[in-house]
């Protein structure tokens, strides 16, 4: 298994020890990307190119990992790993699940087997 070369990524926020995250979701987005690459769903060079294009097109000064997430969504739908409609439907389902879940309870999707 080839470890992804983080230095290929434009503007990658990290130090000599590795990436630096400022919030947990950033680490989750990072891990998803690395896991998909390890699974052979895309070449690391393609990822670097997609991310670079999103960063270059950004005019609103969003954070690095906001752009990272957008690039990941772009690559996933462009490569037809997931469809845009199912992504949008799932996001709505999660939003509703969060809203109906009292603070302190595990958040689960309606109809999911993990529902309590």
């Amino acid at each position: 298994m080839s470890a992804p070369n983080l230095k290929e990524l434009p503007g990658f926020p990290g130090n000599e020890e590795g990436p630096v995250f400022s919030e947990p979701w950033e680490a989750q987005a990072f891990a998803l990307t690395v896991a998909m690459h390890e699974k052979g769903l895309f070449e690391w060079a393609d990822w670097a190119q997609t991310l670079g294009a999103v960063i270059a097109a950004d005019k609103s000064g969003r954070s690095y990992y906001e752009l990272w997430l957008e690039a990941l969504e772009t690559l996933i739908t462009e490569n037809s790993v997931l469809g845009t409609e199912e992504v949008s439907a799932r996001k709505t389902a999660w939003r509703e699940a969060v809203q109906r879940t009292p603070h302190g309870q595990p958040i689960v999707l309606a109809g999911s087997s993990g529902q309590q």
Binding site: E23, W25, L32, L72, E73, R90, K91
Partner: peptide, 8 residues
């Protein structure tokens, strides 16, 4: 952001 990551 958390919603979008959880979705994917």
């Amino acid at each position: 952001m958390e919603l979008r990551v959880k979705t994917l």
